[in-house]
Design a protein around this nucleic acid. Structure first.
Lengths: 191, 191, 191, 191
DNA sequence: GATGAATGAGGTTTCATTCAT
DNA sequence: TATGAATGAAACCTCATTCAT
């Protein structure tokens, strides 16, 4: 019955979908669930998205690329590897606290979207790995497998978010940010 | 004349299901997929499991509890917090390399099974957190939020497995075990 | 300031619709397809037609009746059955070459419209059959079932159009007209 | 409720579907219609056919190829072009009277299936055209465009079936067979 | 015990039509 | 008056589960 109530239907669909995808999983979220959350008919969704699959992919890709670029531009001005790493970790924390649903959608739900990225597309993992590789090259970081080091940093940063999702930790990740930076640096420099 | 071609049908179902759940996700795996993988009819599956849901849950619970106990019994003989933590991390790595599909099923797929555990059931997270809390109490580990510390250890141990799943790291996690122990200890003791 | 960019929107809709109906079928052509082909909005279509169904029917009826009358008036001045038949076949060929889409829409697509014609409405089939019946009465054509004879003529005239649609024959049907007349006469007079 | 009542579900589906496709058109026939006609559930259909589209295509291709071969093998033993043509036309009539629904499905409904045939697959049209081309080569038939001649024969044979479908002619096409043969020969030899 | 056709609820998608703007 | 987002019924299809054989 209500028509044209909100001009930004598309955005509202994306927001609702992301949240549902995180809460229940992509497969477990029906198009009807999304439509209900936005209070439009199921059919109306299809004026904004070609298919459920395309909705997932479009949002994922756009935001994933955007997030990667954001990380990269945070690291760029920094000079030392430590500075770059710290800036990126801060970027993770801020991104999470700004929009926890989106953050978790991008980094946990994924749902096989990762494999659909154009081969060679830069990812947050690459961004972190490259900074570490640079630090190794400049002797700031001891010699080691850069991918393993990147895994350590990723784990240190993401796992608290998972714990937060289960209520084991506060969901204000930014408040732990300095600790995560310190822990990451310790993990990376301890061989 | 053997009634069953394979006497251990039930085990074979579980093994195949776990693998499919990890590869595609639980919702994306159909009962038909599982039946085909085991080369029995769909109907025959229901002689071994009440429902798909029950299959997921039964396997999850049994193995999750088992894994938790294993971790606990590895830690028990150790005296120091560091020794306990190292033993547990070694336990993670061994468990992964013994049966990577099961490991990933328990620790990544989950699919909301975690929330179905009887409240108060011990989990690997609890096991790690308790050891850390003990270390803090005995002053071996500096004062800090034990859940956050547990998150750091979990992240450090699990993220390399994720990277391995994407081909970024070798899937022989045991070979990285000492490094993971060192990194965990560094992360936990650096405040 | 012109209210409409094109004053003949209605005609343009009909033309585009007919072509789409022939190319894809009536059911397979969506209102959106038609709107896009005419470059107007879907809603605007409904200012010109009550419904898709009505669009099909209105165009069909008007043109079918018109085509029938045209055939009849071509035959009327002729005296002999052979002359009448030749004039009508020439009418078919001309009608096709003037507007092949319309011709095929009327004679092939039909889509059950035929059964909606008012009972007793004259059709091209009737026109041909009547001429043949007249020829039989006047002994110009040997005694036979006039409907079967009409079927022969119809088949001889329409099948080349079908072949043309599949690229098996040139779509300039008029160039084959004399041949079709001769063949029809031969078929009708050979018992 | 009823299960396994008839062993030949697949055949029954095909028969019912073909009839519905002819009566209403392919697009206008829903999967539900077919299921109801066979008295099974919609879902059950999908154990026998991958999709509605595949059902249409599978039946069409199998029967179309079969019908073409049948025509060819009827013509083969005959020596003269006239004999071959007569045999084929008799083949058309018999095929129609044996199973009018299938005949009309193959030769009228088509629904764009024709374009999906492997390029170069022999069709009834080719069979007739080849016989005519042979007759022209052997001087039995006067010089002319063999495709046009084939169109004449096709029209003469198929149009009575169309008339029969509309009740204008008896649906016992075999009874008109000799007439159709004579008319075809007259049409083809009259240049 | 095993089989796999059948069920039926529910999911995704399409599309003729309406109507607020 | 034209637009196109929205509706809602209905289409196609999937899949966990049942059950006659």
């Amino acid at each position: 019955m209500p028509r044209h109530r909100f001009p930004n239907t598309r955005e509202r669909i994306e927001k609702a979908a992301i949240r549902l995808f995180v809460e229940r999983g992509v497969a477990e979220t029906t198009v009807r669930d999304i439509a209900r959350a936005v209070d439009i008919s199921e059919g109306a969704l299809y004026r904004h998205f070609v298919s459920k699959d395309e909705l997932v992919w479009r949002v994922f890709e756009r935001e994933y690329v955007h997030f990667t670029e954001r990380l990269e531009s945070l690291a760029r001005p920094e000079v030392t590897a430590r500075g770059k790493l710290a800036a990126m970790i801060r970027g993770f924390c801020l991104a999470h606290d700004e929009d926890p649903w989106l953050f978790r959608f991008l980094l946990f739900v994924q749902h096989g979207q990762l494999t659909r990225l154009a081969p060679g597309s830069p990812t947050p993992v690459d961004a972190v790995r490259d900074v570490i590789a640079g630090g190794i090259a400049s002797k700031e970081i001891p010699e080691q497998h850069p991918d393993l080091a990147a895994a350590l940093v990723f784990g240190i940063v993401l796992q608290p978010v998972t714990f937060a999702a289960y209520g084991r930790l506060s969901s204000a990740v930014t408040s732990m940010c300095d600790r995560l930076i310190a822990a990451s640096w310790a993990a990376v420099t301890t061989v």
